[in-house]
Simulated assay, not measured.
Amino acid sequence: MAKNDYTYAVARIRAREGKLLSASFLEQLVSAPDCDSCIRLLREKGWGDKDGEAPFELLSKERERLWELMEELVGDLSVFNVFLYGNDYHNLKAAIKETCMDVHLPGIYISHGTVDPEVIQTAVSKKLFSELPSTMQTPARTAYETLLTTHDGQLCDVILDRAALTAVYQAGKDSGNEFLALYGELTVAAADIKIAYRALRTGKEPDFLTQALVPCDSLDLPSLIEASGKGRKGLSEYLKTTAYGKGTDALDVSCSAFERWCDNLLIQRIRPQLHVPFGLGPLAAYILARENEIKSVRIILSGKINHLPEESLRERVRETYV
């Protein structure tokens, strides 16, 4: 579809951007006395659709609304596969663990992937991996056999996480859209850095990183693996030679602080889409903006439920798009 074909869709999104949560509103939530007060504030903003919704049910509803809107605007959601593959692999991971552990985990599957969760669940439970998309078949079979024979859940996760990141990265590259390619690049690079950081903290061997990391344009994997083997200082020194050098201070604090820095970097990079009148870019930016604010609200609600101090929540809340 030509970029001009999205002009009407972008116009619709422009009308909705004004309803995105602002930084000042997120501060209101952080300052609210409890979770119920946060829910009331969110309802005043139009979140949720019925009284008595559980906090995380409300968040799920907002994600449903987001993707229902996108389907209405573009029809074929495959243009946003770069955002959807992660859901597929989440569901694949869930199906494998349910099957191998012989348990039922209610509510573990999520919607809006490229494959119906029931198809994934059936394929795994019956070991009919050929019924999955071709790119999922090998990692699904390998992860299933690994968990079944070794009972190593972490290794199973590594196999599927790597496959998911590879799918996201390739979808960005194949999209022909600079913005979607940027999303794929930043997603994989951030994941690689977090994997390397956790590996050095837990004393993983270089072979682990070779299996877990996914190639991307903005990182040199051999250099990243070598730097990880030199400890935090070595990793920081390498990252300062990359586009992610400004994130080293956050990484020195914690992996979650670095994840926040990466999320904020993405929001900063997508803000120019606020002024683009057509194309997929503004639509994709709106998706990320909505997902980002839902993540921030989830952090705040979880913090209120667990009685975390306000300052701790402020340190975790993400930047807003508007």
Rank of each mutant, 00 (worst) to 15 (best):
E62S: 02
E311G: 11
S312L: 08
F179D: 00
G303L: 07
H104R: 15
L182I: 02
G153I: 09
G18T: 10
L301E: 04
E319L: 14
D88W: 10
A284G: 13
I294Q: 03
Q170V: 10
L42W: 03
R43G: 05
M136I: 01
Y144R: 04
L313F: 06
T114C: 12
K240G: 03
I267R: 06
F129R: 12
L105M: 10
S60D: 14
L69D: 01
N264E: 13
L105C: 05
P277G: 12
L58E: 08
D5E: 12
D34W: 10
Q170H: 13
L266R: 03
T142P: 00
M136S: 00
I96M: 01
V124I: 15
L128H: 11
S22G: 11
G203S: 02
A2D: 11
K295S: 06
E291H: 04
R201K: 14
K93Y: 10
G75F: 07
E226G: 04
G86A: 14
Q154N: 08
L283A: 08
F56K: 12
L20Q: 05
L147R: 05
G234C: 05
N292V: 12
S37R: 15
G52P: 00
W47M: 07
G176C: 07
L41I: 06
R162I: 03
Q273T: 11
T114D: 01
Y169Q: 06
R40M: 06
Y109F: 14
S60L: 12
S254W: 12
P282W: 15
K204S: 09
A164I: 02
D116Q: 13
A123N: 00
F56Q: 13
Y286E: 01
R314N: 06
K97V: 01
Q170D: 07
P222R: 09
I193D: 00
G18R: 15
S302I: 05
P55A: 12
I270V: 08
V103G: 04
T114Y: 05
N81P: 01
T99V: 12
Y169E: 02
A164Y: 04
A181K: 12
E178N: 08
I287L: 05
R318K: 10
L69A: 01
T241N: 08
N91F: 04
R65S: 08
L308W: 10
F179W: 13
D207P: 00
E237R: 14
I108M: 12
R316H: 08
D161S: 11
G231I: 09
S256Y: 11
N81D: 15
L165M: 13
R290E: 12
L59K: 00
Y144F: 15
L155D: 05
S22A: 10
L274K: 15
A285T: 07
L84V: 01
E118Q: 14
G231W: 06
R271G: 01
W47Y: 13
S312K: 08
Y144N: 04
G107T: 09
G75V: 09
R201M: 11
E145L: 11
S37Q: 13
F56E: 15
E72C: 02
G172C: 04
L160V: 08
